[in-house]
């Protein structure tokens, strides 16, 4: 139990560190959202699952928070990306394709 919990917490922290690194290194809002939401979703879930292993008394709350993160994080990140796109924030110059733009042009 303790070993599994520690491994999960360590794994989650590693994902969170990578997410923070991605926020610094990625070129534009959309790429940063990838790092800032995908990595932290997995990282936070892993840390919570690990703490549920380490402290079984907290397991119910931890699972509830995991469910909430699984629902809320994608919604908020998609809303941020949508409003950034609508506000006209440009893609990084290195981007190669804009599916939404070509889709709207086709309609």
């Amino acid at each position: 139990m303790t070993i599994a919990g520690n491994v999960l917490v360590l794994l989650g922290s590693a994902f969170l560190v990578l997410g923070g690194l991605g926020l610094l290194r990625m070129p534009d809002v959309y790429n940063r959202l990838q790092a800032g939401t995908k990595a932290t979703t997995l990282g936070a879930m892993s840390v919570l699952l690990g703490s549920a292993f380490l402290a079984p008394g907290l397991a119910t709350k931890a699972v509830l928070v995991i469910v909430f993160i699984a629902l809320a994080n994608p919604i908020s990140s998609s809303t941020i990306a949508r409003s950034a796109y609508k506000a006209g924030i440009p893609l990084a110059p290195v981007s190669v394709r804009d599916d939404l733009k070509s889709k709207e042009a086709a309609e």
């Binding site: 909430f68 629902l71 809320a72 994608p74 919604i75 998609s78 809303t79 949508r82």
Partner: peptide, 13 residues
């Protein structure tokens, strides 16, 4: 209207 995902996800949460 915030888009489809926020419409339904927000109402759920």
């Amino acid at each position: 209207d915030g888009g489809f995902i926020l419409q339904y996800g927000g109402r759920l949460l």
